[in-house]
Amino acid sequence: MAISRRHPAALFAVLFVALGTTGAAYAAVSTGTAPQAAATSSTQVDEGKQLFLEGCSSCHGVAAQGSSDGPSLIGVGAAAVDFQVGSGRMPLAGPAIQAVDKPPVYTEEEIASLAAYVASLGAGPAIPSDEMVDTSNADLVLGGELFRTNCSQCHNVAGRGGALSNGRWAPNLMAADPKEIYEAMITGPQNMPVFSDKTITPEEKKDIIRYIEELQKSENPGGADLGRFGPVTEGVFIFIVGLGILIVISVWIGAKAR
């Protein structure tokens, strides 16, 4: 008769460690902040120019004309600045395939000044007003249809983001606020395409934002959502946890009684 070399509880212990690690991986949740839109004035443009020369011109050029390190900002509009700097993507921490959102480096006033300066260089999309992102009367059903048609291919049907080519990715929308989403649609940050106001009207943009808000609010009555990535994470989970439990039970059934 073979003598058991392990403590009978060892397999349970291994299983619980595996479960705990899996659980911890879903624990991190972060929230983003975005500054308020502000009125443009000539002093604001001057302040913005100053900030631009100090913080941005090394890559975007002293006249925002662009360089080998960064694109031209002429005509990108205030919305692009508010999105990129407000979400912390700009200034870049270092050369990378894609800018990462992080706590903003500039204050809300400074971002408004930068936006005013860049907007003064050439016509571009303006920062959406609070009224433009007020989704209280938006059409959730149409928003869902438009989201699945235009957004879900990259941002995932549940808005959790996804992989693109060469290490790029479409970000998770769970912490995105309505203004950020609106700005992203009209400016097309990084590799995201522009969804113009003619092909997706401002009203329809509200509908899409309403749908994303609904996704952000949605509970998981079934328990862990496993990232809402679908069969891959669910398969890995049941493969490790489910098979683990089956192995433990099989070992117990097969062990010789004393």
Partner: peptide, 9 residues
């Protein structure tokens, strides 16, 4: 209706 960099389904 379609700006450079734009996408329409």
């Amino acid at each position: 209706d379609i700006p450079v960099g734009g996408l329409v389904n």
